[in-house]
Computed example of a mutant assay.
Amino acid sequence: MDQKRIARRAGLFFLRGLNDLARNLPHPDGPAIRITAVVIGTGEDLGSVDLDTTNAQDLGFLASRRTPRPRTAPALVTPTGKRGLYLVGGER
């Protein structure tokens, strides 16, 4: 299957999923944004879906969670010149 057909199929499935989401879990205030899918390279317009802000924000959050984030290095502890551990002795 060539890349343009794969892109078309993926776009149609994406729009179908967005449409199902908007229909099955609508926000009481209604749709606020329109998401349109166009195949890059052919310019074929696959359609659009009107989606409410709650579902759009949830989708963005889920997409961000799937994105690998670089791990931050642990903060380096700089010695201050004082000992952090003191030995308290008794009789020997």
Rank of each mutant, 00 (worst) to 15 (best):
G30N: 03
T72E: 06
T67A: 06
N55E: 01
D2P: 01
P26N: 13
I33Y: 04
T42W: 02
L25S: 11
R92Q: 15
N55Q: 12
L15A: 07
R16A: 13
D29E: 08
D2M: 05
D45G: 10
T36V: 13
T36W: 00
G60P: 09
V38Y: 07
D29P: 00
T36D: 10
L62I: 11
R66E: 11
G60R: 07
G41Q: 00
T67M: 11
R71M: 10
A75R: 05
Q57V: 11
R71E: 11
T36G: 08
D20C: 09
S64R: 08
A22E: 07
P68M: 00
G43K: 06
R69P: 02
F61K: 12
Q57C: 12
L18K: 06
I33R: 06
I6M: 05
R34P: 03
P70L: 05
Q57N: 14
D2A: 00
P31H: 03
K82I: 03
P28H: 15
S64C: 06
T80D: 11
D52W: 02
G30C: 12
P31D: 02
Q3S: 12
L62W: 00
Q3M: 10
H27K: 02
K4V: 07
D50W: 10
T54E: 14
D20V: 04
L59F: 04
A63P: 00
T42V: 08
V49E: 02
G81H: 14
M1E: 07
M1A: 12
F13A: 14
D2F: 03
A75W: 00
Y86R: 09
A7N: 05
D52K: 01
D29A: 06
I6C: 00
V39R: 05
A22R: 04
R83Q: 15
A73H: 02
S48Q: 08
P74I: 10
L76Y: 06
D52G: 10
R5I: 06
P74N: 10
F13T: 11
P79C: 05
L87C: 03
A37Q: 07
L76P: 00
P70K: 06
Q3G: 03
T53K: 15
R8T: 13
D29T: 07
L25I: 05
G89C: 14
V88M: 09
L12D: 10
D50H: 13
P68A: 07
G84E: 10
G47N: 08
M1K: 04
Q57R: 14
H27N: 06
R16P: 01
R71K: 15
G90M: 14
A22G: 03
I35M: 08
V88K: 11
L46K: 01
N24A: 14
R16L: 10
E44Y: 12
F13C: 09
R66K: 11
V39I: 09
N24R: 14
P28D: 15
P31R: 02
V77G: 08
D2G: 01
R16Y: 09
K4D: 05
R8M: 14
L76H: 01
R5N: 14
Q3K: 08
T42R: 05
A37T: 04
R92W: 15
T36M: 07
Y86F: 10
I6G: 00
I40N: 08
G17K: 08
K82M: 02
F14K: 09
D50A: 13
